[in-house]
């Protein structure tokens, strides 16, 4: 049976603030969904909520995968069911080698542990495909990695874990043109082999033009305001979002970035106030 991800009227809050205000979406195997929209309007929130990030509270709505209630599952159960999130900011785990981490991840979903031989063969293949450094297996997870290396490492994990539905959260940012192509090719190859379903968040038309999405959704202020296919992606790339705002008479939320304070600036601000 086809494993389908169904999201229905999903509302998600962070703390007291509602970010997603009723999202409905269905992703089938072998489909590629582009998730678009201005920054700070809920794209990453949607992906993290599907994966079960503890900071994101689902207040109402449902998510099912293969007809099972995803919201009732812990993060690791979701992963073992076949969901995968390639993160925008992967975490570093110092002292833990990529090899140990990946083997634990693969073994978590298999009855029998993967043989060392098979593991080394697969990781070497992945390293070559993504043109990563040879010593990757022995380096600590994301420790001292460049932005580009981290992103490739996410894709390497995806290739080895072989999920059934993968979410790529700005996987192309921090990558140069050649690397973007490597990553897109690797994702498409996996899709071809395994009928992987994909949800892709990106700001760059370049990545979408390589990925060729079958569906596109634009999220503004926590709602999907327009849906379409590859053409919609192209139109947004050429014209931006303004036509949409006018047509639908809506306003995007401005992205809230946490203010960066340093002792120096606080002190200076205070002096300014006194002056």
């Amino acid at each position: 049976m086809e494993k389908i991800l169904k999201i229905n009227d999903l509302h998600v809050s962070v703390g007291d603030k509602e970010i997603l205000k009723g999202i409905s979406l269905t992703v089938k195997p072998d489909e590629i969904h582009a998730i678009m929209g201005p920054n700070g309007n809920g794209k990453s929130t949607l992906l993290k909520a599907i994966m079960g990030h503890p900071a994101y509270t689902v207040t109402s709505g449902t998510i099912t995968f293969d007809d099972e209630d995803v919201l009732a599952m812990s993060v690791d159960e979701r992963s073992r069911k076949g969901l995968f999130l390639a993160m925008q900011y992967p975490k570093e785990i110092s002292g833990v080698t990529n090899s140990d981490f990946l083997r634990a991840a693969i073994n978590a979903r298999n009855e029998k542990p993967i043989s060392l031989f098979k593991f080394i063969k697969e990781i070497d293949k992945g390293i070559k495909t993504l043109k990563m450094k040879d010593d990757l297996a022995h380096r600590f997870v994301n420790d001292g990695f460049s932005g580009g290396e981290m992103k490739r490492n996410e894709i390497l994990q995806m290739m080895m874990i072989k999920p059934e539905l993968a979410m790529l959260d700005e996987i192309d940012s921090g990558l140069d043109v050649d690397a973007i192509k490597l990553v897109a090719d690797a994702a498409l190859k996996l899709k071809e082999e395994t009928k992987l379903g994909l949800m892709v968040v990106s700001h760059y038309e370049r990545f979408f033009s390589l990925m060729k999405p079958t569906h596109a959704h634009v999220i503004v202020d926590g709602k999907i305001v327009v849906e379409g296919d590859a053409e919609l992606v192209e139109k947004i790339d050429t014209d931006g979002y303004d036509w949409l705002y006018e047509e639908l008479k809506i306003k995007p939320l401005k992205e809230e970035r946490p203010m960066v304070y340093s002792l120096g600036t606080c002190a200076r601000n205070k002096r300014n106030v006194n002056e």
Partner: peptide, 20 residues
Amino acid sequence: FYLMSRGLSEEEATQMIILG
């Protein structure tokens, strides 16, 4: 969250972070 999103249980993930 990162480790669990790859299928490790909370206990396994915690152990891995500690051993690291």
